[in-house]
Design a protein around this nucleic acid. Structure first.
Length: 403
RNA sequence: GUGGAUGUAGUUCAGUUGGUAGAGCACCAGUUUGUGGCACUGGGUGUCGCGGGUUCGAGCCCCGUCAUCCACCCCA
């Protein structure tokens, strides 16, 4: 027997219904905010992710499904969605037009990690990317939209926000931080020491208790935000307060991907184990430019569909359509004709085996239809069908053409 | 990549000091060619993850391996 690869899952029945429900709910809301659907390739040039996500990140450093294809191209399966969308945006030369563009997408992402609860090698994200809008109002709007999606799905969450600064304030802060970290270098863990050189901001995110204790005194980004970033972050908080969206400011929320700037946020759930982030995103004003486009401000997010599947409560399923069965084999062709006609408008389940009444009724219970339609010898001879409304329990024999 | 736990029927699980596999649920058939969900009767559907080893004999003990789950790490 051939099983799915490690960390990859088949979705069927309740699970696939959950998946669809989440995507549909999110897409419906995203469209109300002006987002249009975009589809980009799963396979991309490896360079795309090296330049966007960043070589210092774990995602690019050790988790990519990367290989050389038959044309000797260095390619990989996308480990996240934003890079591909930004590439598509630039490929279509949309960066040359001063028009705002908003896209939503969903689909599989691939990371070669060790699987655990809420962490798969192939997983699915739904995401939105808004291009050309530099205003913090857009950051606020996108957070509001996510909150609305989770509310619609009946999911509780905690929102964490932070500001990562911009090209003016970040370099200054970074320098100060590196100096401060270098002083306590010997006491910090191995990972942190490596990060001082590659991506010092990530040191703040270290889960090691000893490191965290040492970092209490280290310079805080919020004290270094520039004249533009500081008021914007304040404005964002004021807007969230006004909207009644609860949040906590998390100084250590630095995001795992290099391309974020200014607003960064994460939606967290306490009910799904250690992998608690159910959505994350932020602003990435410089990414378009990094990927050779004209400088274009942008903000976006992605939510983890599998993680949300564990939390969502599905609406109850209403009985729907028809179950059709025959109690004599000769009646089946007539049944098929009827089914084709009804399928123009309704869901129809047809049982091809002719069998007894009781047996059919068991099939009815399984199919959960609104109506049961059976044809026996009498009905076949008279050109009628036996029809039962499973809700009202009323039953009647009617002409086959009247159904 | 590191660590811990677990692999027995479709599923959830039991299986004693080592003696050749069992229960609930589900499923199928019948009671019942014409009123379902209930009930009763009957039916086990299995490479005990895989490969070695010890033993007269292994689901059980030993070694290896694979997979799953959980945590670290990372992140959606």
């Amino acid at each position: 027997m051939i099983n799915p690869l490690r960390g990859m899952k088949d979705l069927t029945f309740e699970e696939s219904e959950r998946f669809e429900y989440i995507v549909n709910t999110a897409a419906t809301i995203a469209r109300r905010y002006g987002y249009g659907y975009i589809e980009t390739p799963i396979l991309e040039e490896t360079a795309l992710f090296k330049r966007s996500v960043g070589e210092s990140s774990d995602i690019v450093g050790k988790e990519m499904y990367q290989f050389t294809d038959k044309g000797e191209n260095d390619v990989c399966m996308r480990p996240e969605g934003t890079a591909g969308i930004v590439r598509a945006f630039i490929s279509a030369k949309l960066d040359r037009q001063p028009v705002k563009q908003k896209f939503y997408y969903y689909g599989p992402m691939f990371r070669y990690e060790k699987p655990q609860k809420g962490r798969l090698r192939e997983f699915h994200q739904f995401g939105c990317e808004s291009f050309g809008e530099a205003s913090v109002y857009e950051d606020f709007t996108i957070i509001t939209m996510i909150a609305q999606i989770f509310d619609a799905l009946g999911i509780g969450y905690e929102l964490q926000i932070n500001s990562l600064g911009c090209k003016v304030c970040m370099p200054k802060y970074r320098e100060t931080l590196v100096n401060s970290l270098t002083e306590i270098k010997e006491e910090l863990c191995e990972d942190c020491n490596r990060r001082i050189g590659t991506n010092p901001i990530r040191v703040l995110d270290c889960k090691n208790d000893k490191c965290q204790a040492l970092l209490v005194e280290s310079p805080k980004l919020k004290d270094y935000l520039c004249e533009e970033c500081d008021p914007e972050f304040r404005k964002l908080k004021a807007l969230l307060d006004q909207e009644g969206i609860k949040y906590t400011v998390n100084d250590n929320l630095v995001r795992g991907l290099d391309y974020y700037s200014k607003t960064a946020f994460e939606f967290v759930s306490s009910e799904i184990g250690a992998q608690s982030a159910i959505a994350g995103g932020g602003r990435y004003d410089r990414l378009v430019e990094f990927l050779d486009g004209k400088p274009t401000p942008a903000v976006g997010f992605a939510l983890g569909i599998e993680r949300i599947m564990e939390l969502v409560k599905m609406p109850e399923k209403e009985p729907e359509g028809y179950y059709m069965g025959a109690m004599t084999p000769e009646a089946i062709p007539a049944l098929l004709k009827l089914a084709t006609k009804k399928r123009l408008t309704d869901k129809v389940t047809v049982e091809y085996n002719s069998k007894g009444f009781k047996s059919h009724m068991k099939g009815v219970d399984r199919a959960n239809p609104r109506y049961a339609v059976l044809i026996g010898e009498d009905e076949l001879n008279n050109g009628t069908v036996w029809l039962k409304d499973l809700e009202s329990k009323e039953e009647q024999v009617i002409d086959i053409n009247d159904l």
